[in-house]
Simulated scan of single mutants.
Amino acid sequence: MAIIQCPSCNKRVSSRAEVCPYCDFQLAGRSPDELEQAQQRALQRRKEKLLGQSMLALLVAIGGFAYSFLEQPHPESWQAAVSYGAMALGLVWFIVNRVRILMVKRSR
């Protein structure tokens, strides 16, 4: 009995397991090519999910900037604090997601 990685969720499972206990991926009865294709699809889904999150983060940052630029709230008002917070949160979230995308690409 050996320990392998599930092609779908990348968690460690027994080579004798018919189904992954974490994600219910069918392991038994699949050829190595099918398992490789499933692993590639899972990796692609993960990259697409991270890319979507980074675009959402960028949208939050742009929204905060646009509100601050167009409305020009008083610097000590709560509207200014929210717009500055949205800009900072969006930019940090964007950078973190970009680093996560690089880590996923590097892990291949």
Rank of each mutant, 00 (worst) to 15 (best):
G90A: 07
L35K: 09
A80L: 07
E36T: 09
R106N: 09
G63N: 09
R106Y: 03
K105R: 15
M55E: 15
M103K: 12
L91A: 12
Q40A: 15
L102I: 06
L102G: 14
Q5R: 13
I3N: 10
R30V: 00
L58T: 06
I101P: 02
D24H: 13
R108K: 15
L27I: 10
E76I: 03
E18N: 11
L27S: 05
A81E: 11
S8H: 08
G52P: 01
L59A: 15
R16I: 00
L58A: 14
K49M: 12
V82C: 03
A80I: 03
C20Y: 00
C20P: 01
R100A: 11
G63V: 05
Y22V: 05
C20F: 01
S107M: 12
I101F: 08
C6N: 04
E48N: 15
F25K: 03
E71M: 11
Q5P: 00
A81L: 06
P73M: 02
Q72P: 01
P21W: 02
L89Q: 02
Q72M: 12
Y67T: 09
L102Y: 10
L59W: 11
N10K: 13
R41N: 08
V60P: 01
S15R: 08
E76A: 08
V13L: 00
S8V: 01
D33N: 14
P75G: 02
E76Q: 12
G90W: 03
F65V: 07
W93V: 04
L51H: 13
A66W: 08
L89R: 01
P75I: 02
E36M: 10
P21S: 00
I101G: 00
K11A: 05
P75M: 05
L35V: 05
Y22I: 04
L56M: 13
C9M: 03
Q5S: 14
Q79S: 10
A28R: 15
I95W: 11
R46K: 15
Q37G: 06
M1L: 11
V13T: 07
G90D: 04
L35M: 13
L51W: 12
W78V: 04
S68K: 12
G90Y: 00
S107K: 14
I3M: 13
P73L: 03
I101W: 02
L102E: 11
G64E: 02
Q40D: 12
G90Q: 04
A66P: 01
L35P: 04
I101M: 15
H74K: 11
L91Y: 06
P75D: 05
R106F: 07
S31R: 10
A2I: 04
K49N: 12
L70A: 15
Q72A: 08
V13N: 01
V92K: 06
L43T: 09
S83F: 03
M103C: 08
S14N: 09
A57C: 12
S14Q: 08
W78M: 09
W93I: 06
S15C: 03
P75Q: 03
S8P: 04
Q72Y: 01
R46C: 03
K47H: 11
Q5T: 03
L27D: 06
E48C: 07
Q40I: 04
C23F: 03
N97M: 10
C20E: 00
R46E: 15
A38T: 05
R16K: 14
G64F: 00
L91C: 10
A66I: 13
R16V: 05
S54Q: 15
F69M: 10
C23D: 02
H74P: 02
V96H: 10
R98Y: 02
G29T: 04
Q44I: 06
V96I: 13
Y67P: 00
Q26A: 13
K105I: 05
L89H: 07
P32V: 00
